[in-house]
């Protein structure tokens, strides 16, 4: 108790991003050294720096460690079922296209149980920004292997090592037709922040994969050291290659170079534009644009 007293209790100026965080819920539930909080910080700075209307910004999360992001953001936030953040967000966006809708969830949530929804939203080019936090395993349930776990890595359900090929997420999103695709690590906070701003300005489907340390489960089980060591690893072993061919950016081994950067940024009519334009063209004067889109 004595030692605590050395913490200064004098009033401090507010961290500029705190207006976007439900500070009454801090400290958050993520483990020491977990990178999800870093990505959330990058997201809040992107929101502040882009000057986006915060009252028109909704965040939808699924289930899992990253699924808890929605609950810590002081925005209109939705914490829905496992894997279904994307279709919920699709309904929300179509119900009110003036909303900026961000899906913020983990690799297991979005790519395993929610994989079908993710590829179809990318195909339709629904104007959503998907921030996928990739920590290479299921954290909330105790570190089971998942669809992004590298070959031979250990997981709670891969006690002898993983023998399934992982997804190359940027490549997958590329062939599905996403309008914007990037990958960063949580060490690359400045680039990540800029990338989130760019992604939110797209009229189509934008996708950012964020590589994140999971110190208590993935790193520990694979004897990769602590979170700090992993952050230094990410700093030293990531190579920025903007515009890289997405098929070349797979992460299949536990250790090795990680290609990061903005891979895809293309113009392709978003779902709302397609729907509106097509029906207008075909139905002419009979077409009634949804009145709730105008408001």
């Amino acid at each position: 108790m004595k030692k605590e007293e050395s913490i200064s209790l004098e009033p401090r100026p507010q961290n500029p991003i705190e207006s976007l965080i439900r500070v009454e819920r801090l400290p958050h539930m993520w483990c020491p050294g977990c990178g999800i909080g870093i990505s959330m910080g990058a997201f809040t700075r992107a929101v502040v720096e882009s000057g986006i209307d915060q009252n028109s910004l909704s965040v939808v999360s699924g289930i899992g460690c990253t699924g808890r992001v929605a609950g810590y953001l002081r925005l209109d936030t939705f914490h829905v079922t496992h894997g279904r953040a994307v279709p919920f967000a699709t309904g929300l966006k179509l119900g009110n296209p003036k909303l900026k809708v961000v899906v913020y969830s983990g690799d297991g949530d979005l790519m395993a149980i929610g994989g079908n929804h993710l590829i179809h939203a990318a195909r339709r080019n629904v104007p959503l920004t998907v921030i996928l936090i990739n920590n290479f395993n299921y954290g909330m349930t105790g570190g089971q292997f998942g669809p992004t776990t590298p070959m031979e890595a250990f997981g709670a359900t891969a006690p002898y090592g993983n023998y399934e090929y992982p997804f190359n997420l940027p490549y997958l999103m590329d062939v599905c037709g996403a309008a914007y695709i990037a990958r960063w690590t949580v060490y690359h906070v400045r680039q990540l922040t800029r990338s989130i701003t760019e992604a939110m300005s797209k009229d189509g489907f934008s996708f950012i994969e964020v590589i994140t340390p999971c110190p208590e489960l993935y790193l520990r089980r694979n004897r990769l050291g602590d979170a700090l060591k992993e952050m230094i690893y990410l700093k030293e072993n990531s190579r920025i290659q903007n515009g890289a061919e997405t098929r070349t950016v797979a992460i299949e081994k536990i250790r090795g170079e990680i290609i990061i950067g903005k891979f895809v940024d293309r113009e392709r009519p978003g779902y709302i534009q397609s729907l509106d334009g097509h029906l207008q063209k075909v139905l002419g004067a009979r077409y009634q644009r949804p009145p709730f889109w105008e408001k």
């Binding site: 919920f88 967000a89 699709t90 966006k93 179809h120 729907l275 009634q288 644009r289 709730f292």
Partner: peptide, 30 residues
Amino acid sequence: PTVGGIFIQMEDEIASSIAIQGAAWAGLKS
């Protein structure tokens, strides 16, 4: 399209049954 609203054919019933909830929280009857 002539009344002023949206139909979307989703990838499965799981998606359909939650897309309508997204729309509901945008203020629509779905």
